[in-house]
């Protein structure tokens, strides 16, 4: 069953066609990876799906429902969570606060009730707290619970950001370069977690990734992008063998050479 469907998506910034007529569908329960050289439009697709950018044309459907016109803050509530390429955590708040923000879309009480912090608010806070404790256990973040993000090393921040996305109880998770900036060991951990997210938590994953080992290890399907256009789709092996992909990366024509 197709969970997320992107149809003829395009966005132009000035004269530049960052994404130019991209279509793909992501099935429930798979790990779908988007690869491509720098500037191919991978992150832009994420920004379009999470509604930060307004597409010039095209449709985005989630669970059969058109979400192209929704504001960005409605996306989390639908069950689409994301991480960011350069980590967008709330730096001056603790890990707990960050994760609790992942629960924001599930809140039921409003600001007025919060002024008084009555029993309903308290009960809700406790319920959310229980939920994020599961995520903390899942990602082994117990040590860092009360630390401020600004004091954490990069690798841990990356995990916290993943955790925050998981706290929203997503149906689909968009991971923007989950391994960038991580060392070999941390990348391995990340690869296990991504598999676990799919296998244990049953969450569909779309990721943008440069590390081909990680891509091969976890992906079910891969989509290769260049200059905002799809050049190949298929299993990791198929895509990597595709002549156009090789040309895009190694520079058969005037494309800039770019190691994967």
């Amino acid at each position: 069953m197709t969970l997320l469907e992107v149809e003829n998506l395009a966005v132009h910034f000035g004269g530049i066609k960052a994404v130019d007529g991209v279509s793909f569908g992501v099935d429930k329960g798979e790990i779908f990876t988007i690869i491509g050289p720098n500037g191919a439009g991978k992150s832009t697709i994420f920004n379009l799906v999470s509604r930060i950018y307004q597409p010039t044309s095209g449709r985005i459907r989630f669970e059969g429902k058109d979400i192209t016109g929704l504001p960005a803050h409605r996306i989390a509530g639908l069950g689409i969570a994301r991480t960011f390429q350069n980590i967008e955590l709330f730096d001056m708040a603790t890990v707990l606060d960050n994760m609790m923000l992942g629960r924001h879309a599930h809140r039921r009480t409003g600001p007025f009730a919060h002024l008084f912090f009555g029993p309903a608010t308290r009960a809700e806070e406790l319920a959310h707290r229980r939920k994020i404790e599961e995520v903390i256990d899942f990602l082994d973040l117990q040590h860092y619970r009360d630390q401020m993000i600004a004091n954490l090393p990069y690798g841990v921040r990356k995990v916290v950001e993943l955790g925050r996305a998981l706290c929203t109880e997503p149906k689909i998770l968009l991971l923007d370069e989950p391994s960038s900036g991580l060392n070999v060991e941390e990348t391995e951990d990340m690869s296990f977690w991504i598999s676990d997210i799919k296998n244990i938590l049953g969450i569909t994953v779309i990721m943008v990734e440069h590390d081909m080992n990680l891509v091969n290890e976890v992906s079910d399907r891969v989509l290769a992008l260049n200059y905002g256009r799809v050049i190949a789709t298929g299993t990791p092996a198929e895509v990597q063998a595709h002549p156009e992909v090789i040309r895009a990366y190694l520079g058969g024509d005037d494309t800039e050479t770019e190691a994967a």
């Binding site: 803050h73 996306i75 509530g77 967008e88 955590l89 709330f90 730096d91 708040a93 924001h104 912090f117």
Partner: peptide, 23 residues
């Protein structure tokens, strides 16, 4: 200590991420 305050902090630290969290 409630979600309103956390939403405020989210806006302070990163509006983009705050929106992505549903704020």
């Amino acid at each position: 200590r409630s979600s309103t305050g956390r939403a405020f902090m989210a806006i302070r630290d990163s509006e983009t991420a705050a929106e992505a969290m549903g704020v």
